[in-house]
Simulated assay, not measured.
Amino acid sequence: MVGIDAGGTKTRCVVLTLGGALAGAGTGPGANPNSGGDTAGALSEALTEALGSIDPAQVIGGVFGIAGAGSAGRPAAVAAARRAWQTSGLRGSPAVVTDIAVAFAAGTSAEKGIVVFSGTGAGAAVINDGAIVQRADGYGWLVGDEGSAVWLGREAVRAALAAFDGRGSPTLLTESVPRALLGPGAVAEFATPRHRGRHRRALALAGAAGDLTGPGGGTAVLIPRPAAPPDPRLAQAIVKEVYGRPPAALGRLGPVVAAAAAAGDDVARRITEEAAAVLLRDVDAVRPALGGSYAPVVMHGSVLRDGPVADAVRAGLRDRFAADPRSAGDGAVGAAGMALRRLGYPVPGPRRAGS
């Protein structure tokens, strides 16, 4: 049985036996055409690797969860899935669902419940038997996906640029964002002797003055000091890098924001707090579609694995449902599990990606 979880930045494929054992696994690039992915190519690459030496005649079905496969993008997603399936020599065609449905299946074998997700995309949905009953957001980087890794990255760049030109508050992001986007070597090229190390020296002086110690000697809080204006070419280099890559590439800044927030940076904290708030708002919007019945809540995506956004969302869900949410495992295994369930076979439990 084949399962695929095709997101905006990565595609994973697994092949499970009818007993739920892992028989093969493969990966490919992002498959969401709305964020720059080649859907058919990514599916084919991951599927070919996962099948390996497996006889295609032994594969009896599969489920492909594809980002952007909602009603607007479904025809293109189905066509790409069938093309990849047939190119691999498989019989029939796979079922195609959105990656949102697969995200829910990655955390529970229940047919109905809520999934809140934040990776390349973000939002929440009520799922019933692989179908979206009601959703909030998940509309793509241009008009939605608030609270996603891409959204976090965009907000981090905006905050860094605002601090550079005097519109925003001093923030650690003015150092960590360019380093993440351009690399330490590239950043050093823009540093004159006057600017080089100024930000770090300001933090060191703040620490010497006792500004880095929390109340009662608790967790240290970094308070960036205003530094000399940076070389204006640095801001332009950042802008060029951002616009020169697919929007999904901004997602790599998600951990940068989380690290700055954990270090006590006020600007980064505001960004992560807003991300958690909008994700919980998404859950509140879809919750009535459950009809008052108990159902599991699954957290899915890189932003919701750990860190300040995950912690805040987990606490908010616990308050709302008086129970701990479930953490999703490997989405590709969730997709294969959906395929097994539809044929009446036992569904394996959640499994971490790569395990």
Rank of each mutant, 00 (worst) to 15 (best):
G113W: 05
Q58W: 03
V96F: 05
S93V: 11
F117A: 14
Q86N: 05
G73I: 05
F64S: 00
P75R: 00
P75Q: 00
V116P: 08
T98E: 07
T87N: 13
V97W: 03
S88L: 12
A105H: 14
R82Q: 04
I114T: 05
K112Y: 06
V116R: 09
A67S: 15
P75T: 00
A101L: 09
R83Q: 15
G92H: 07
G113H: 14
G92Y: 07
G65V: 01
G113T: 12
I100E: 02
I66E: 08
V96R: 03
V116S: 05
A81T: 03
D99K: 14
G119R: 15
R83W: 00
T87V: 08
G119M: 10
V96A: 04
A79R: 12
T120C: 15
A101I: 04
R74N: 04
V102D: 08
S93L: 02
A105F: 10
G61L: 01
A57Y: 01
A84C: 08
G121H: 13
G73N: 09
T98L: 02
L90V: 10
V97R: 15
W85M: 03
S109K: 12
P94G: 05
A84R: 01
D99P: 13
A81I: 06
T87I: 01
W85K: 02
A57C: 00
A84G: 03
A77S: 15
W85S: 03
A69F: 04
G68E: 13
G68T: 12
I114R: 04
G70T: 07
